[in-house]
Structures are given as structure tokens and as C-alpha cells.
Write a protein that binds this DNA or RNA. Structure first.
Length: 879
DNA sequence: CACTCCCGCCAATTA
DNA sequence: TAATTGGCGGGAGTG
């Protein structure tokens, strides 16, 4: 283009002299240009010949001013030329010279041409997407600005966004280093994880936004507000220095960009509407936000969106919601990248659940290895991944009702998430400060790590631990809570993934999540089998336990609730753990890997300790359970203080949650029995679904009988490594059933169980499945659910609210799906929401930490499969 | 009129 | 203190 300009320019200049032959000019011949040239001449084009000069020329040409000048000149020309065509010239030019005219015209008129998106494309065109690692390209802002013919201010807009994705990094004043997209997948992954943590919860909570707002709002406002923004990821890469880096405030554009991307990554549909994003990004509570602020945020989002669009990461779409059409953006970039972009993407929907998980797990592991693992973004999980397929599909079809729903949900979730996020952020910050941990990523999680750090073993040992860590990292206190919510989701996914692991006889649960399993269906048997069981089921706990102990403590300390009392403690701990696990990573991670890696086993010992805590996890696992658990936990912690929470009494969910909580607290008892490893067993933990009764799921938790599950034994050690294991075999039938029910059941159980034991355990949840629930719910849910499953944990969470949850919980690919469905059914999104809200509310109230709260809710929501709801409802029935 | 989002003032930060 | 960054919001272009 520039060249053209030049040519044009040049000609023009000469032309001046040439003057005037209209004929010539008009003529198609190059000569016409001459006319234009005059302008050029006028302008001192100092060095037309010089490259720089050319650039300048171009720039000037491009710039309006230049044009104007040119125009003026032209005008003059006529005079000069007098007859010639002066006047005509301009017109003629346009007409005649394509190039010239075009350019001119283009330049002038089109605002589009000046668009940030276009500018960004030009900018990007200057650098290779995948530069040789060795060579580093430095970018001079001044130079780029001049070359592109724009003000520097605009370059900042672009660079800031690119920097948020690590495509460039600032090396010095006016100097940026171009990295290209080599690390894009990693960055996205991090963002996804971070997003899950932050928003996942939120998503889950969606409904509860309000609640959250209240709660959070207060806190945030007071404490957090300003800082909230802190770059989520600051990833400034590992470099620690990054800290210093934060120049100025938060650099909202960078942060906003990251958050914005997170929303996409966390979103099931991968579609985010601007208004929702704006709300979420407005850190504060949505409530407060004033209109002007909202408008400003939207403007910024457009800026960011333009850049992201240029990067090919998103595209503009319209979402039709109840209210009408809304502008939105759809993520078209890589969806999953567990460690690497590829993984995620590649997965087919079906596979998603599994693969995603696995991958996610892998990534996590890797991370762990790295060291910072703690933070582990593991948390993040890919739980979400599974959802991808679904999401995408959905998203692709904005118009489809489903999508719409999702969107709505998402939006809601997002809002919630936002709130949660805030909390989280606070927490994280808090944590971070304390911890000072720097992981490669500065992600929030890190902070949490510190907490986690406490538990060395776990981390080292499992991914799970890691997963937990992340949770922790977030807000410590919060994290614990948060985890719950997330966990559930995770669990679901995990379950799906982990649980089902096809190959293995047993299901694994991700440590983090833990959870569940399922299996078979037998409902009744179990209880019997489990001799011990008496304890609540802490199944997953065991696994978690390993980690948790320390963590729990920490968490507990931080957050909440009292960990101390054993019973309570456990719960709390469990919660915490759960939360942690659940929160983020859990779901995702746990499932798969644990299994695979022998480590776990090896580590078992470590695990054992934690086992207790694991209980909590159990809850999570089952996503449904998880929710419950979460809720319970939260409840425990909070003790459901929030009656209000149950805003939606209607929905079972809340009730369920409550119930679950209650269960824990109340009568319910652990549905699962946990057998500790006593003697010989030491190494194994058993879980029972005590009640699992699947059918019961609904709570039935009490209904021990229901569970058929025989039992699941898990070596404690193993557990440690794995969150849970189930014998699939049991499930055989299960699998299908279980899914939905399963999760629910599980969750229920968990919650109950959570209380108690420390040991690891396990659970079979087979029973859980309680067919009853599952089926019905599943149906509804299923559809949604499926997606849910796929959904990333976060999504699921959020979505869960919507539907999937339960199903999601299951998370499992194959089996899970079924389960999910069932479970899901109950949960209709709608219903779910309310439920969630309630649940959340309750939870939150109890929870000190917003985050935890959120998580809990999230869990619930997600998990909140019908089961949960049921549980809750009954239990709580508060409202 | 609503949606986009360019433009550039001017404050915060840095050198 | 000057220069660099970048928040922010008016208001214009577009459909």
C-alpha cells in the first residue's frame, strides 16, 4: 500500500508541473497522477526516496491530516492549473485513478480503515507468528506508529492486548519484544485455568450473583476494590520481576484482555456477550456499576475485541437472547490446550471429556513438575474441555435455543463468576502476598500455592494435590470454599473422565476432585459391605486427604471454618479440599491421571493423611455430590447462615444443597461409609455409598440401602494418588445410570461423608446412581448435560447451573454422559439456577470467604444436579 | 437510534 | 521535568 502511495505520490508531484493536461491526467496513464503530485511536492516529502520518507509519506497519506492537506493542495492546484481539471481533478482522480483515488478515499472516509482491528492486522503482519526462538524481534513503538501511520496511543492499545497474551513483552521504554504465538497456547491454558478458578466458580454461581454481590460486594468494596484488578495472570512469565512490572495501576487493558479471554475459555459456549463481559469485568459488583462505567468498559472491550479478532481468536457474533440480540464475540481460537494447545482442540466432543481430562491432567502434572505446580493451574482444568465440543457446537449456532440458554446461563454465570472472581482475586492477592510464590505464572493460584505448599507431599505426589493447590492458591480461605463449587464441577468432568476410565476397572477420580465414582449401581449392597463405613463417606476424602490435611488446615485456618473439630473439621476440611479441588483443577485433573500414575500409589501414605480431608472431596467428585458437599461445606462453615441463599426455594437444588448440608450437619449422615484402613486395609480405604442410594440420591443419602454399590476399595495410598476409585465393574450398570445419578448420589454421599473420615476412601457410588434421579433428571439435563460434561469445569459449573451439572459431574465421557444426563435432568438449568442461588446463598453466608462460597455454589450449581437439589431441598428445605 | 469505536485529552508513571 | 503510558469518555461513523 505504501508503495502505491508513493508511486502515486511521486507521480503527483511531478505532475504538478506537468500540469495539467487534463487529457493526460484523465487519461488512464500514469500521468494523471501528476496532478496529485502537487500535493506531494507541497508537502515536503523530504525524502521520498528514502524508505523512511516513504513510510512517512504513506503514513501521512493515510492520516486524515495528510489527506486534508492533499486535498487542499489539490484544490489549489486547480487554481494553479487553472483550467485543467482542477476541480475536476479531484473527482477525476477518484474516478480515474483507481489506486490513487481508492487510497485517498479509503483513507479518508473509511473509518474502518482506521480501525484498531485493521491496524492490528497491519501490526501483526509485520511480525512472524512463529519467529525463530532464537531471534528476538524488538518492536519500537515509535517506529511502528510512524510506519503504520497512527498515533502511538493506538499502538499501545494493540501492544497491551498482545502483551496480555504474551505475544509480546515489554523490554524497555518504547521497546517491546515480539514473541509470536509460540506461547500462546500456554498462555491460553493458563488463562483458562485461571479463568476456571475465578470464573468457573462464578459461573457456577451464576444465580447467586446477587448473593455474591452482596457478600462480595461488601468485602470487595472495602478491601479489594482497587486491587482487584490485579492482573490475573500476570504471568509475566515466570519472571518474578513481573511484580515490579505492574506499572501503573493495573493496566486495565491488559488485565481486561486477560479476563476477557478467560471468559471465553471458561465459557461453555465460547460465546461471550459484551454486556456480560463488561459486567464481569467491572470488578466491582455489577450492581453498583454505573452506566458510564459500563459504557467505558464496553468501549475497552471493543478495543480488545478488535485486537483479538485480528489475532483470529474471536469473531463477532450476535446472540439472541430473550431480550433480543446482543452483540457478542465467539471464541474461535484453540479451546483446549492442556499443556499445549493441541490437546484440547483435537478432542472430539466425546473424547473431550476423557482426553481433555487426561490432557489436562498431563499438563498439570507437567506443571507440577515444574515446580510451581502448586498453583497449578491445574486447577484450571480442563474440566472445561470436555465441554468444548458441546460448547463449540452450541456456540456455533448462536441462534439455537440451546445456545441462547447457554448464553444466558453463561452470562449469568459470568456475572456470578465476576463476583466470585473478585473475591478470589482478593484472596489470591492476599495469598500471593503471603506466599510470594511465583510460579511461572503469576496466576492467582500461586498464592494459593503457598498454602498448598504446606503440604509438600501431596503436591509432589499428585496432581491432585496440585489441583488442590490451585484452589488454595486462590483465596486461601476462599479457595477452600471455592473449591467446593468448582470441585463439583470438576468432579463431574472428572468423573466422567476419571471415573470412567475405560480401561481400568476402577474409576479414578481426580484427586482434586475426588470423587466419585460410581459405579455401580447397586445401591443397596454397599452399605452392607462397608462395614465400617459408618463414617460418612468421605470417600474421596481419602484421596484428598492426603493432601488436605495440611491444606485443610491451612484452608481451614484461612477460611474457614473450623477445621478443627474433627467432625466439623473434616467437613470444613473436606470442604476446603473439595473446594480446592473442585475449584479448579480438580475436576479436570484428577480423574485421569491419578489413575495412570502409579505415583499416587506410591504416595499413598501421604495421601492417607490427607485422606480425611478427602472426604470433602468426595463431595466434589460427584459433582452433584460436590455441590452438595460444597454446599454442605459451605454450610458447615457458614452453616448455611444464608438462609436467604435459597432464593429459589423452588428449585430442588437449593434444597438439596441445604439438605446435603444439613445432611452433613444434620441427620443426613454420610452417605458413604468410609472405611478406614484399619488393619490390613490400611492401605485401602473403602467407601461406601452409604446411602447412596442412588435413588436416593436425592438425598437419600440416608438411604443407605439404596446403594448397591458394593464398595469400592481403594488403597489409601492409591487413593492418595487417586482421589477415588471405583470399580467400574460394579457399575457396569452403573455407568449408565450412575452418571447422572451417580454424580448426584455421589455428591450427596459425599457431602455427608465428608464429615468424617479422614481416611481415604472410596466410594462406590455406583449406587449413587440411583437410577431414579438420574434418569429423570438426566433427560433434561442430558442435553444440556452433555454439553455440560464437556463443559469445562468451569463451564460446567456455570452451566451446571444451567443444566448439566449433574451430568457433567459425571463427567465422564462415556458413562458419564449417561449419568450426567440423568442428573442433569433434575437440574434444569433454570431450576438449577435458582437452586444454585439458594444453595449459594446459603453457602456463602456460611462461608466466610466469598470465594469459597462461590465455589461452593458453583459446585452445587454445577453439580447441583438434580440430586443435589433434591438433597438440598430436603435437607434444607429451609426456604 | 443503537452499535462501534476513533480520537485525543490528560493523568499516572517512568526515565 | 520531559517523555512515556495508558485511562477514559466525547462524540462521530455506520447501519
Amino acid at each position: 500500500e505504501n508503495i502505491f502511495d508513493r508511486s502515486r505520490m511521486a507521480p503527483k508531484t511531478p505532475i504538478k508541473n506537468e500540469p495539467i493536461d487534463l487529457s493526460k491526467q484523465k487519461g488512464c496513464t500514469p500521468e494523471r497522477n501528476p496532478i496529485t503530485p502537487v500535493k506531494i511536492i507541497d508537502r515536503p516529502q523530504p525524502d521520498p526516496w528514502t524508505p523512511t520518507a516513504n513510510l512517512k509519506m504513506l503514513v501521512s497519506a493515510a492520516s486524515p491530516d495528510m489527506r486534508d492537506r492533499e486535498k487542499k493542495k489539490e484544490l489549489f492546484r486547480p487554481i494553479e492549473n487553472s483550467e485543467q481539471s482542477d476541480t475536476p481533478d479531484s473527482l477525476q482522480y477518484d474516478i480515474v485513478d483507481d489506486t490513487t483515488v481508492d487510497e485517498f478515499e479509503k483513507q479518508r472516509p473509511s473509518r474502518k480503515q482506521k480501525s484498531l482491528g485493521l491496524l492490528c492486522q497491519k501490526f501483526l503482519a509485520r511480525y512472524p507468528n512463529y519467529p525463530l526462538s532464537t531471534e528476538k524481534t524488538t518492536i519500537s513503538l515509535d517506529e511502528v506508529a510512524s510506519v503504520l501511520g497512527v498515533e502511538r496511543r493506538r499502538i499501545y492499545d494493540i501492544v497491551n492486548v498482545l502483551e496480555s497474551l504474551h505475544l509480546v513483552s515489554r523490554v524497555a521504554k518504547n521497546q517491546y519484544c515480539w514473541h509470536g504465538r509460540h506461547n500462546l497456547s500456554q498462555t491460553l491454558k493458563m488463562l483458562q485455568e485461571a479463568g476456571e478458578l475465578q470464573y468457573g466458580e462464578l459461573m457456577t454461581f451464576q444465580h447467586k450473583e446477587q448473593d455474591l454481590e452482596y457478600k462480595f460486594g461488601e468485602r470487595k468494596k472495602e478491601t479489594i476494590l482497587p486491587s482487584q484488578d490485579r492482573p490475573l495472570l500476570d504471568f509475566s512469565e515466570p519472571d518474578c520481576s513481573s511484580a515490579s512490572a505492574n506499572s501503573r495501576k493495573d493496566k486495565s487493558l491488559r488485565i481486561m484482555s486477560q479476563k476477557f479471554v478467560m471468559l471465553f475459555l471458561v465459557s461453555k459456549t465460547k460465546i461471550v456477550t459484551l454486556d456480560i463481559a463488561a459486567k464481569i469485568l467491572i470488578e466491582e459488583t455489577q450492581d453498583t456499576v454505573d452506566h458510564s462505567k459500563f459504557k467505558t468498559k464496553v468501549r475497552r472491550l471493543y478495543d480488545i475485541a478488535n485486537v483479538l479478532t485480528s489475532l483470529g481468536l474471536i469473531k463477532k457474533v450476535h446472540v439472541t437472547e430473550e431480550r433480543g440480540r446482543k452483540p457478542a464475540f465467539k471464541w474461535i481460537g484453540p479451546v483446549e490446550f492442556s499443556g499445549k494447545t493441541d490437546e484440547l482442540r483435537g478432542n472430539s466432543p466425546t473424547s473431550d471429556s476423557l482426553p481433555g481430562t487426561e490432557r489436562g491432567a498431563c499438563a498439570r502434572y507437567q506443571i507440577c513438575a515444574t515446580g510451581k505446580q502448586r498453583f497449578v493451574r491445574h486447577t484450571s482444568f480442563n474440566g472445561a474441555q470436555p465441554c468444548e465440543g458441546t460448547r463449540r457446537k452450541v456456540s456455533s449456532e448462536p441462534n439455537s435455543p440451546h445456545q441462547e440458554r447457554q448464553d444466558e446461563y453463561c452470562s449469568k454465570m459470568i456475572n456470578l463468576a465476576a463476583v466470585c472472581r473478585q473475591k478470589i482475586e482478593e484472596d489470591t492477592r492476599w495469598v500471593a502476598r503471603n506466599s510470594s510464590i511465583t510460579s511461572p505464572f503469576s496466576l492467582l493460584p500461586v498464592p494459593g500455592d503457598s498454602d498448598f505448599c504446606v503440604n509438600p507431599l501431596p503436591q509432589a505426589v499428585f496432581p491432585v494435590a496440585q489441583a488442590e493447590v490451585p484452589n488454595l492458591s486462590l483465596p486461601t480461605g476462599v479457595s477452600s470454599q471455592a473449591p467446593h463449587p468448582s470441585t463439583p464441577a470438576a468432579s463431574k468432568t472428572e468423573n466422567g473422565k476419571a471415573t470412567l476410565v475405560p480401561n481400568q476397572p476402577f474409576l479414578c477420580f481426580p484427586s482434586s476432585s475426588f470423587f466419585m465414582l460410581c459405579g455401580g449401581l447397586q445401591e443397596n449392597n454397599l452399605s452392607e459391605t462397608l462395614p465400617t463405613a459408618g463414617d460418612t463417606g468421605n470417600t474421596s476424602a481419602q484421596a484428598q486427604a492426603a493432601i488436605p490435611p495440611a491444606v485443610c488446615q491451612k484452608r481451614s485456618s484461612h477460611k474457614c471454618t473450623s477445621p478443627s473439630s474433627p467432625a466439623h473439621d473434616e467437613e470444613p476440611a473436606a470442604k476446603k479440599q473439595t473446594m480446592e479441588q473442585s475449584d479448579l483443577p480438580l475436576s479436570l485433573v484428577v480423574p485421569k491421571k491419578p489413575f495412570e500414575s502409579p505415583k499416587y500409589e506410591s504416595t499413598p501414605g501421604s495421601c492417607c493423611p490427607s485422606a480425611v480431608h478427602l472426604e470433602t472431596y468426595h463431595l466434589d467428585l460427584t459433582s452433584p455430590a460436590a455441590p452438595e458437599a460444597a454446599s454442605k461445606e459451605s454450610l458447615d462453615c457458614q452453616e448455611q447462615e444464608k438462609p436467604s441463599q435459597n432464593t429459589d426455594p423452588d428449585e430442588p437444588c437449593p434444597g438439596n444443597e441445604h439438605i446435603s448440608k444439613e445432611n452433613t450437619n444434620q441427620p443426613f449422615q454420610p452417605q458413604y461409609l468410609y472405611v478406614q484402613p484399619t488393619t490390613g486395609l490400611s492401605s485401602f480405604n473403602f467407601l461406601f455409598s452409604a446411602y447412596q442410594a442412588p435413588g436416593a440420591i436425592s438425598l437419600a443419602s440416608n438411604q443407605l440401602p439404596s446403594l448397591s454399590v458394593p464398595c469400592v476399595m481403594v488403597p489409601s495410598a492409591a487413593l492418595a494418588s487417586f482421589p477415588l476409585v471405583c470399580s467400574p465393574s460394579f457399575t457396569s450398570p452403573l455407568s449408565p445410570v450412575p452418571d447422572g445419578s451417580f454424580s448426584a448420589a455421589a455428591s450427596m454421599n459425599f457431602s455427608m461423608s465428608s464429615l468424617a473420615s479422614t481416611t481415604p476412601v472410596f466410594i462406590s457410588t455406583t449406587a449413587m446412581v440411583t437410577p431414579k434421579v438420574s434418569p429423570a433428571p438426566s433427560v433434561d439435563l442430558q442435553q444440556p448435560a452433555h454439553p455440560a460434561l464437556h463443559l469445562s469445569p468451569v463451564l460446567t459449573r456455570s452451566c451446571s447451573a444451567v443444566k448439566l451439572d449433574s451430568p457433567v459431574c459425571v463427567g465422564h465421557p462415556v458413562t458419564l454422559l449417561k449419568l450426567q444426563q440423568p442428573s442433569s435432568t433434575p437440574l434444569t438449568p433454570k431450576s438449577i439456577r435458582p437452586a444454585h442461588h439458594e444453595a449459594f446463598f446459603k453457602t456463602p453466608g456460611s462461608l466466610g470467604d466469598p470465594v469459597a462460597w462461590k465455589k461452593n455454589e458453583g459446585n452445587q450449581t454445577r453439580s447441583a444436579s438434580s440430586v443435589q437439589r433434591r438433597l438440598e431441598i430436603p435437607g434444607t428445605s429451609p426456604d
